[in-house]
């Protein structure tokens, strides 16, 4: 009888086991036709995979009344996973903490949000101490790894939305109520925990 080549077949077998396990644990989320997973798949079938047509759309929204802990959402036309492609948490003094593939979790000036064609500023309905604790949590993860399709569990691998979701999750506030396996910027927009400060669409 021929021996199984375990070096060749270990990862295909693990892929199958992990896929079944994740699907089994998330049956409700994965059967929801409005979930992010379905949105990704629908858009992929239509040939859309990325974050849309990057450009400088000059929305010139005002940031004057932002407070630490507020959330900014930005989007480009043709984004594959919703109206918004990016999220940041405002940390005060004209700075936001956000995630990029090359910079990891990083602190940047807020003004770059003027480049988006879709922009929205959100206030989280939480007390200032909770919001400051969320900011401190995000700040404690500066420099950590960004992976575009990061799953919800874990505090080592992030994307721009997961770091904000976890920062508020640590304060007992769940900004994503669908129970999906990943978080999208649009989830924050739809969350009952936030109110829109202002939003703008320039196209």
């Amino acid at each position: 009888m021929k021996r199984i080549d375990w070096q060749l077949w270990l990862f295909p077998l693990l892929t199958l086991v992990l896929l079944v396990s994740i699907c089994f644990q998330n049956q409700a989320a994965l059967s929801n036709k409005e979930s992010l997973t379905y949105t990704y798949l629908r858009q992929a079938v239509q040939g859309r995979l990325g974050y849309g047509a990057v450009g400088n759309y000059g929305n010139m929204i005002s940031f004057h009344d932002l407070e630490p802990g507020d959330i900014l959402l930005g989007g480009y036309p043709g984004c594959a996973y919703g109206r918004f492609s990016h999220a940041s948490i405002y940390v005060g003094e004209g700075q936001v903490i956000e995630g990029y593939v090359d910079l990891g979790i990083t602190q940047q000036p807020v003004e770059h949000f003027w480049t988006y064609s879709e922009i929205c500023l959100l206030k989280v309905k939480a007390d200032p101490a909770q919001k400051q604790a969320a900011v401190d949590y995000a700040r404690s993860h500066l420099g950590e790894l960004f992976y575009p399709v990061a799953f919800r569990p874990g505090e080592r691998i992030w994307n721009c939305t997961k770091i904000i979701w976890e920062a508020y999750g640590q304060q007992g506030i769940n900004l994503e109520s669908n129970g999906d396996i990943w978080i999208a910027p649009d989830d924050f927009y739809d969350s009952p925990w936030v109110q829109v400060i202002r939003e703008k669409s320039v196209l």
Partner: peptide
């Protein structure tokens, strides 16, 4: 091996 490791290890990030 590399391509299936890509899939398995990406899925394994669900279990930190």
């Amino acid at each position: 091996i590399h391509i299936f490791a890509w899939l398995a290890i990406w899925l394994a990030t669900y279990y930190p």
